[in-house]
């Protein structure tokens, strides 16, 4: 499975949104993700991709596309 598909799957699962509603352009705001949702999302991503993601690194991450780019730069 591609990073994109995995990320979309995790976001859909964590935030309970339909996966076909998600694109690279979808922002956290679009799917009503608050700061605690982001924390949970980061934890799920850390588990899936076996990463440690610091708060500073995700400060500028606002969309699904940003997440995919970030993960691809790490794995």
């Amino acid at each position: 499975m591609s990073v994109e598909a995995k990320v979309k799957g995790i976001v859909a699962d964590q935030l309970e949104v339909a996966i076909d509603k998600l694109s690279a352009e979808t922002t956290f705001e679009d799917i009503d993700a608050d700061s605690l949702d982001v924390v949970e999302l980061v934890m799920a991503l850390e588990e899936e991709f076996d990463l440690e993601i610091s708060d500073q690194e995700i400060e500028n991450v606002n969309s699904i596309g940003d997440v995919i780019k970030y993960i691809e730069s790490k794995v």
Partner: peptide, 10 residues
């Protein structure tokens, strides 16, 4: 809050 939340769920 965010750090405590992260700690707790883990």
């Amino acid at each position: 809050g965010n750090e405590i939340f992260k700690f707790a769920v883990g």
